[in-house]
Design a protein around this nucleic acid. Sequence first.
RNA 1: GGGCGCAUAGCUCAGCGGAAGAGCACCUGCCUUACAAGCAGGGGGUCGCAGGUUCGAACCCUGCUGCGCCCA
Length: 874
Amino acid sequence: MTEKTPQQHTDLPNAWNPADEEAALYQRWVDAGYFTADASSDKPPFTIVLPPPNVTGSLHMGHALNHTVMDALTRRRRMQGYEVLWLPGMDHAGIATQNVVERQLANEGVSRHDLGRERFVERVWEWKAEYGGKILDQMRRLGDGVDWSRERFTMDETLSRAVQTMFKKLYDDGLIYRAERIINWCPRCHTALSDIEVDHSDDDGELVSIRYGDGDAAIVVATTRAETMLGDTAVAVHPDDERYAHLVGTEVELPLTGRRIPIVADKHVDPEFGTGAVKVTPAHDPNDFEIGRRHDLPMLSIMDERAVITAHGPFQDMDRFEARPAVVAALREQGRIVAEKRPYVHAVGHCSRCDTVVEPRLSLQWWVNVEPLARAAGDAVRDGRTKVHPPELAKRYFDWVDNMHDWTISRQLWWGHRIPVWYGPDGETVCVGPDEQPPTGEGWHQDPDVLDTWFSSGLWPFSTMGWPERTADLAKFYPTSVLSTGYDILFFWVARMMMFGLYAMDEAQPFDHIYLHGLIRDANGKKMSKSRGNVIDPLDWMDRFGADATRFTLARGANPGADMALAEEWAAGSRNFCTKLWNATRFAIMNGATVATPLPAAEDLTEADRWILGRLAAVVSEVDELLEDFQFAKATNALYHFTWDELCDWYLELAKVQFSGDKAEGTRAVLGHALDTVLRLLHPFIPFITERLWTTLTGGESLVVAQWPSADALPAADATAGARITDVQKLVTEIRRFRSDQGLKPGQRVTTRLSGPGFAALAGHEEAIRSLARLGDPGEDFAATASLEVSLASGAATVEVDTSGTIDVAAERKRLQKDLAVAEKELKQTEGKLGNQAFLDKAPAEVVDKIRVRRDTAAADIERITARLNSLPS
RNA sequence: GGGCGCAUAGCUCAGCGGAAGAGCACCUGCCUUACAAGCAGGGGGUCGCAGGUUCGAACCCUGCUGCGCCCA
């Protein structure tokens, strides 16, 4: 104990300051080319394409979570010897970007129409150059190991070429067509929207019942959108509805218009709802449109693209929300309002980009016939070519792809991929491929519309690799390995990529695995939103706790498919973990921890050394297994507990004792090796601090390209050593509990004599036990004032203590009584089971044996504790 | 209206057929020479309710209640 361990100097500062080091570490990785994929490599490929963030967007917690997942996946595979490609980029976000630039123009007092199409698109590119893609810099702060040399943008020339190629291919195969249908129209963005770009919410509205016609011919209809009655071209009832049978085939006068409209019978009318009669507005309602088609009704549009009434009469030029009460008032004046219900809560569609209430509108648009594509997309998951994690979410995927409606792909915007179709003077329609010349001459013009952004991002897994060219990247890196995204984006994007990928790439699925993470919520499980004011900014966390702590917090909460609650305390906990790792490694280096291989032979190691190596091997296996199954939360929690509780706590304390023993070299090697391994395992999650520590500890080039640990490389677990250390831990813990109950200060050395058969088996660990429990050696004049017995696997150990004063008998009695109560409960439970013949007959033998052992242990404990209690002075 | 999921410690969540767990929060004592962003000890749960299956149920089944999500 007198010989002092020489302490080495390290170049590690006293504390880890992420802000000082992260940027430089990241730049070093990029400069070294670690993230640049090599298509000519012989290594097996591992590919992830980054879900392209919106060019207008900035990093939020959802990104941070998804990026943490992808970075962990790719960093681990890289360490495992794969040729890793993680491909970054952005999408052009048609509506969102156009909105941003239009707002900018509005501030200058001009509209896009003032500028003209060509100049406007130039302005968008200028905007992108100046303000777009902030998120890419923010990704660097997170530590994303993406291949920047392959960064892509959906409006890049090659990706635009892919879009045009795909359009042409679908068109030629008859899977793209043009048709006039009811679409979701945003009167603010002035464009069509697909079904999934519409968010439904339950809003307060009104339900107005209107009487059409008079006398015997009168019929009452109810509507939440009274103004649309101006466009009614029929009233429909169910064919079996006897109430109205006599009216079917007759006509009724439509109030306010003087028009006469037919009463038709249609079996899609629900006779139970309202009066059982519905007004039919084929040009402004999808269901009415279908009724209109079946009965060959006129399709009367009564609003323009701004949702302003165009129908002649007193309501002309009124906005739809102005027209609604005006129409109701006019009807009321005529005595035609039968009933009014306000508020009437009903589902209303809103534009997902600007929240304006969507107006169903009859309009000529381009469509994708999704039926064959969606079937293939479903089949790829059904037959296991693509696996969904967690598997429960596959059902939701099937529900979607198996019931998908045709997809409106044209958008009335200027920013995006223009539809490659030209119309001729005599009604010709020509679809032009990327290498073809569009027809020229009098009367030819291109379709003015652009394609839905999801059309181009649906091609992302292969357009980014150069499709339709047969590039080396495609050959090497497609199909991609994993697609990681939130489950909320399953329909928007994942299904589209599946459809397009299978179709364009000869039935090759775009990814082997789909990992779906949950949504980020606040500490109370509420959705984060600006209006709630509960948004946590990942950049703020990175500033205050470091990128590693931010990532580790997200990884520890990442249970597949499950939402995750976040609070600052979580990040602080992760920061504390990083600090612990830092201090432990610094301590190890100061004490000469080594990483030379191979490890010393078993006989040159202590039981503590062999125990921690066994635990290390178990953790390596466990973490590997969990990560193969996308169980990030469980894997990081296993690492957290092993690192903190076992390595940095028990083993490090044991190592302190061993440094002055005769197996100190072995201890230095085991400590160094264990830290080396743990840093490798943690690197995919907390890359910065592990890199800094590992390069200092080992002198290696970089953890990014270090080898992933293998449990096979570690010595087999030593069961005896494991049992001994477990006993040491139990003995130390029991002594500490006694000390605490007796009010003995943690720092105070307490003179103690250890004995008994249980202790005899641990004799080699006496110094460690004395150190960990802060016990002094008994001198000649040792006189115990108290004693306790601890039952260990190796038998009972006796601990006699000189507390240098009176013992707190009441505290000691309380402690023993508590132990007694536990043992008695255990005895009662186990005896109950063993007294049940059915249990003895039917339960497996090993379960019965286990219960017997527990019963015997409990009985022995009761006897021991009772004796101890009786011996206490009263 | 159709479908799915969740109800376990104050909070957020693991556990999913054989002894109730973690993180944070809380209480007590400690600046014990890696670490107070720390150390040691401690309290706290009839596992939503009611039935059923089983030798045995937080875990499987049925119903109910309360939340949440998706689709229409």
